[in-house]
Simulated scan of single mutants.
Amino acid sequence: MKSIIFEQTGKPGQILKATEVALPEPGPNEVRVKVIAAPINPSDIMFVQNLYGIRPQLPSGAGFEGVGVVDAVGEGVQIPTGTRVSFSGVGSWSEYALAHEKALVPIPDEISDDLGAQLFVNPFTAYAMVQDSGVPEGGWLLVTAVGSAFGKLVIQLCQMRGINTIGTVRRDDLNEELKALGLTEVINVETENLAARVKQITDGVGVACVLDAVGGHTATEALTCLAKGGTIIIYGLMSMQDPTINAGLLIFRELTIKGFWLTDWMRRVDSQTRQDVAQNVVRLLASGKIQLPVEASYPLDQITEATEHAERPGRRGKILIKP
């Protein structure tokens, strides 16, 4: 079978290649999935560059999630072969992949393959972070880099809960699309003063929470946008620069800075919470209330073109690998 393998870490376009490998056999509590589609997420790109919380064991497969059909099962597995599932685990950019039974979510017919491929990383993260933000109905939430797939999910989830959202962008070409999804206010950080605009929008109060994926100057400015007792949750570092922390701001506004990593969140919460989130995400996707657009799909042999497209600015949807 073909699988995307890398033997050293670095830029995806330079080190990833489709390689013929042996068909894997599932061990106890594992299944083998015949992969239909798998997305390219920022976490996948970081993993290949050895910049992620999980370090690759070389040679390594790539891709953290996907959708497919259970092809074979190991000892102790209850799910039957032929079941279409969303799955998570290292190595989804492949014709076949292994996954633990607990990392499977059976998906109904109402959810397309393109949606099912994206069911885990972004929807689970968005749902969990909106929950953790603690922003009440009528409150304000600030999302940096709101044009991302994650940002668009947060907008839609917040609209359903009656939470007002402010999103930052660097270009104005997505503004109308973001407003149509439910974004309350948009701020172009290249042309506008973030703190001044947030103060104006919130009548001088500030936002209850910031969800930040950028770090650097953007996160530093976002801290000043928090209301007294507010929280910034950092889940990414797109700028590859750490924010500057103003200790006086933290002390006198009683602010909180937290990190979020879905892998740890999944370990931290109980099984009932994980099941509840999975059921809610599946229900929302099946209802059509949540949109996860796809911009393009590529076969395994075009992995270089696929990763380059995924890192291109201004995308309007996810890039998928379809073996």
Rank of each mutant, 00 (worst) to 15 (best):
K2W: 04
I5V: 13
I5P: 01
E7C: 01
Q8D: 06
I15E: 00
L16E: 04
K17Y: 08
P24C: 08
G27W: 11
E30W: 06
K34H: 10
P42Y: 05
D44F: 00
G63H: 08
G63W: 05
F64A: 07
F64Y: 13
E65L: 04
E65K: 05
V69K: 11
V73N: 02
V73K: 03
G74I: 10
Q78A: 06
T81Q: 12
T83S: 01
S86G: 10
S92C: 02
E101I: 12
K102I: 09
P106V: 10
D109N: 09
I111N: 09
F120E: 09
F120M: 15
P123Q: 07
F124G: 01
M129S: 02
V130E: 05
Q131E: 12
S133H: 00
V135I: 08
V135Q: 05
F150Y: 09
F150T: 00
L153V: 00
C158S: 11
Q159A: 10
M160D: 13
I163Q: 02
T165P: 06
T168H: 14
L174R: 13
N175I: 13
E176N: 10
K179M: 06
A180G: 13
L183Y: 03
E185N: 11
V186I: 13
V186F: 10
V189W: 05
T191L: 07
A196M: 12
R197G: 01
K199Y: 11
D203Q: 09
A213W: 06
A219E: 08
T220G: 08
T220M: 12
E221T: 06
L223N: 05
L226N: 04
A227H: 05
L237G: 12
P243R: 02
P243S: 11
N246D: 15
L249E: 11
L250E: 02
L250G: 04
L255Q: 00
W261H: 14
L262A: 04
R268G: 13
V269H: 12
S287V: 07
G288V: 06
P293D: 08
A296V: 03
Y298E: 04
Q302E: 14
H309K: 14
H309V: 13
A310N: 00
R315A: 10
R316P: 01
G317E: 09
K318D: 02
K322D: 03
